[in-house]
Nucleic acid binder design. Sequence first.
DNA 1: TCGCAGGTGGTCG
DNA 2: CGACCACCTGCG
Length: 299
Amino acid sequence: MKLIKEVRDFNLKHIFECGQCFRWEEEPDGSYTGTALGRTINLNMEKRQDADAGTENARLIIDGTDENEFEDLWRSYFDFDRDYGEIKRTLSMRDSVIGSAIAAGSGIRLLNQDNWETLISFIISQNSNIPRIKKCIEKLSENFGEELPTYRGKKRYAFPSIEALSELSPQALSEIGLGYRARYITETAKTIARDGGKMLYSLGELPVREAYEYLVSLCGVGPKVANCILLFSMQKYESFPIDVWVKRVMNRLYHIDENDSAKMESFAVETFGEYGGFAQQYLFYYMREFPKEQRKQED
DNA sequence: TCGCAGGTGGTCG
DNA sequence: CGACCACCTGCG
């Protein structure tokens, strides 16, 4: 079953390759297929968008769902109802330098992902690289996740449940290639499983500072991973995850010392405020996507 | 070959 | 409390 939705500020490549998610893959036709929330769907744009069509209205084709499911799950997951034009205008007014980053990733949207999957995925992401992170998460799902209906000729697997991972030994996880993160995952899974995930799934209702303090108390979760979880699954949009790419781009655009994370954090709070997380996504994508020589000089 | 890749925990001073 | 540093593993 296919749905068609009018969208604006919505670009598949920008959304799925700005570093927030790991289970969406580009198909040969430029569409993206992914498994999230226990379902597999495919997204495609009705007409191929040219480079800066992100701000124009366009038609999105969603395959593998229906209206009810769209309302229940995907409307929120893809952040359909937020006005990204307003966000981009506000950020551009607050800062004169971010404009080129916004132009580069004009169709980015912040997905509302599952708390548990986001927690474990970003523990896995630490000190690793995107291809390896994706492989690890797929193997984890194939081995310990529920089997889902075949889609486009491929078996699909849900992300493993809290219970499933909490019962595993670190050795079982090491075999997947998680390395030293295996222990972090089993430890954290046990902690989260103690109340069946109630605490984790109610964190979003707490003030961001309290949710943050809880997250960094988990094994394998530090400031960067905690901010990713808050931003990508708990709608705490003031969160500003600082990773190596953000350090590079902040150094390049704002001339802040690359190892002065504290200064980057305060700069983000003062400059981007409640939209810090959106700014982070535009900046991250800009730095990732464009080789140095193609990037506009900003001095 | 060896350093690096979307950091964190542990250990010093 | 801030500055190191080891750490699994795959890849160029």
